[in-house]
Amino acid sequence: MRQLKYIWRTYREIIIAVALCMAGFGGLFFGVVPTAKNTLATLDEIKTLSAHVEALSQKAATLDALSEDTLREQLAVIVSAIPTDKAVPSVFATVESVVATAGVEVMDMSVTQAGSLATASAQKLSTEEKTIGASLLPFSVTIRGPMEKVRAFIGRIGSVRRLARIRNFDVSVISPEVIQARLALEAFYVPLPTSLAKVDEALAQLSKEQQDALTKLATFPWFSQPKISAPQGPVYGNRENPFSR
């Protein structure tokens, strides 16, 4: 004990100085540095969160500004032009209507590759299909009629819903007034996406060209529109329960 008292008496100043140093530098290294690191990490986190919140705010504002009814109408227009599956009947309906409008006679019509067994995702797309972003449904039509009516059909088939384009064609003269045209055409279909983008992913904007395309499509006549109308009046007679005897 006397020894300790002696040491304290002798080296008190130096002990206090060393203790102060240890406390000061220890505080710096073990207290301030981690807190500073924590501050910087929190600052980074805030930057990331701010950007995230900004993007989400914009997305929410864009979605709020969109009218669900308008979206439905626009979707109906686009799906009527480029359906989500092969929808072969709509090809026939469209061609029949264009034929009737143009005033030509259909001699033959066939759809090739109509019944592929592969699902849409399993089908291998050709380079052209990849470029366009849609699957192609080839079909051929042979029509007969006067030159101007065949011309009307050729001019009209590309500007109706459902959309189709002529790949190649040949014309032969049957009589001075009647020509026959054999056309190889392609209709398009795009399967619906199977998954939605993540919530935090930004919304792709409709470009001016895309909006123009939508406006143009809306002006095209929709010949394959379902003709089924909602039943009018009581469909079960006057009974409330249709299964009652």
Partner: peptide, 23 residues
């Protein structure tokens, strides 16, 4: 709906460009 519309309209735009005035 909006995502589908953006995707399909991009396709429609390309399809419309590829349709030639054969008349």
């Amino acid at each position: 709906m909006y995502a589908v519309l953006v995707k399909q309209s991009a396709v429609a735009q390309k399809v419309l460009v590829s349709i030639k005035p054969w008349e």
